[in-house]
Nucleic acid binder design. Sequence first.
DNA 1: ACCGAAGGTCCACTCACCGGAACGTCGCCG
DNA 2: CGGCGACGTTCCGGTGAGTGGACCTTCGGT
Lengths: 267, 267
Amino acid sequence: MTVVPFVRPAAESPISPQNDADAMNSVLGKARLIIESFTAEDDVLSLAELVRRSGVAKASVHRLAQELLEWGVLERAGNRYRLGLRLFEIGQRVPRQRTLREAALPYMEDLLIATQETVHFAIHDGLDVLYVEKLVVHRGLNKQSRIAGRLPLYCTATGKVILAFASPSLFQEVVRNGIRPLTRKTIVQPGLLRAQLDKVREDRLAVEVEETRLGYMSVAVPVFTAPTTLAGALSITAPTCRMNVGRFTGALRTASLGISRTLQSLA
Amino acid sequence: MTVVPFVRPAAESPISPQNDADAMNSVLGKARLIIESFTAEDDVLSLAELVRRSGVAKASVHRLAQELLEWGVLERAGNRYRLGLRLFEIGQRVPRQRTLREAALPYMEDLLIATQETVHFAIHDGLDVLYVEKLVVHRGLNKQSRIAGRLPLYCTATGKVILAFASPSLFQEVVRNGIRPLTRKTIVQPGLLRAQLDKVREDRLAVEVEETRLGYMSVAVPVFTAPTTLAGALSITAPTCRMNVGRFTGALRTASLGISRTLQSLA
DNA sequence: ACCGAAGGTCCACTCACCGGAACGTCGCCG
DNA sequence: CGGCGACGTTCCGGTGAGTGGACCTTCGGT
C-alpha cells in the first residue's frame, strides 16, 4: 500500500480561502472535503486515507461515504473508494462546458487533422485557464495538460488571450497573487507581460514560447460569443521545432470564426 | 417564463428506487434532489422551479443553494441557477471515465477520419449504456445521443455488445424491466433478442438497424481490458443508406485492438 | 391600487448528525 | 503463537446544525 504524506500540497488549490476552518460544521462542507480529497493522481483512496486528507472524523467519513456510495458519487474498489460515474454524468450537464464543447469540438477535429498537433480549448476560471476540451494526436504522451486541468493564466497562450481581453483588474490580481515561473523562460516581469498583452489585444493572437514547458510552444486565438464577450481561447501546442506560427495561426483563425458563428446561432 | 409541469417524467431515471421518499431527511439527499433537478434541456432554473422540482422546502433550497454556490457546484445566471464549472472539473476526475477516454479518444479520431460517421464509446451502467465519448462529423445535427447520455441496452449496438458479454442475469433483468420500443423496428421479443446476443458473442460484432431511430443504424464491437473483462463498446452510427458494415467493421476491430492494448499497457 | 408570485430572511424547535468509544478483523513481527 | 497496530464498521447519547412555517420586500401584470 502506498504511503501518503499527511499534509497535502494545498498550494495550487484555487478552491477556497478557508480550506478546513469552518467548512467542517456543515454536511455539505464535509462532503466537499471528502470529494476533493481525490486528485487525478490519487484517485483511489481507503477510508483511513480519506480521514487523513479530509480531516473529518472517521465515523462521519464512513457514514457520508455510504450515502455518497448509494448516490453513485463514490464507488467501491475493493474496500477503497473512488469517484463514481454519476459524478461524470452530472458534470457533463454543466451548461457552460457543454455548449462550448459541442460548438468547438468539430472545429477542433479539423484543426487536429490539418496540423497534427495538440489542440486545446480553454476558458477563464479564477486565476487559471481551465481546459474544456483537448485533442491529441496519437502517441503524443504529454502528462502536462489534461481535460479539466488547470494552468496559470500568465504562462499559457490561452491564458494570455484571456488576460488580454479581460478587465485590467484581472491582470492586477494575477500580479498581486505572484508569478511563479514554471520554466526558466516563464515571463515574470509584470511590465513585460503587460506589453505582450497589449500586443495580443491588437493582433488577436497570443504566443507562448517554452514558458510552460521547455521544448514546447503554443499559439492561441480568442473565441467570441458576441463581438464584445470572450467565450474562451483556442490554441495549438507543438514542439518548438515543429511550430509554424504562420500556418497554424491561419487555421486557428478559421476555426475560431466557425466556433463563434456556431455559438451565436444556437444562443 | 416557461411553465413547467409539476411532476417530472421520472420514468427513465435509473437513479434510485425511492425517488423522494426518505431521501429528504438528510442534507445530502436534499442536495441530490436539488442537483438532479437540472436536466440537459432545463439547465437554468429559478429558485421557485428548484423548489417545485426537488420538493424541498424553499428556505432549505435557498440555504443549500448558497452553499453550493460558494463551492462552485452551482452558478448564478441572473437570479436563476445552473450547474457550475466545479462540477465539470470534478466529473473529469472520475477514474473509470478518464482512463477509458484517454485510451479511446485517439483511436476514435482515426475512426472519424476514416469513416466520416458518428463514433461512440459506451460503457455499462445499470440498465443503460452510458456514452463516455462521442465524436461527430461536422453538421451532423443529431440531438439523439450526447456525451454522458443514456440509451437502453436492448436497442443499441453498444448495448447488445454489453449484454452479450455480461452475465445472463443482466439480460433477465432487462427483460423483467420491460422492453419499450423506441421505434417500430425495436426488437421487443426476448427470444429474438437472446438469439441475436448469442450471435454477437460468437461474431464479436453487434448491429442495430433503426431500432433506436428510424433511418439510422449502428455497428459495435467489444473493447476488452483483459481477455475476459469487457471495458465497453465502440460503435459507428450512420444513416442506413450510407452504412457499409464490412468496411466499418474492419475499422472498428482495428481501433478496438488499439484501445485494448493501450488500456492494458497503462494498467 | 391590488394581486400573485417571486427571492430572500428570520427564528425557535427538534431530530439528524456527530464523534468518541468499542468491536471484529486482518496482516505483520517478535 | 500471541500480541500489536491499523483498518473498516457499528453503537449510542448529547446537541447544535438544519429545518421549514411565517414573514418581508420587490416586481410585473391587470
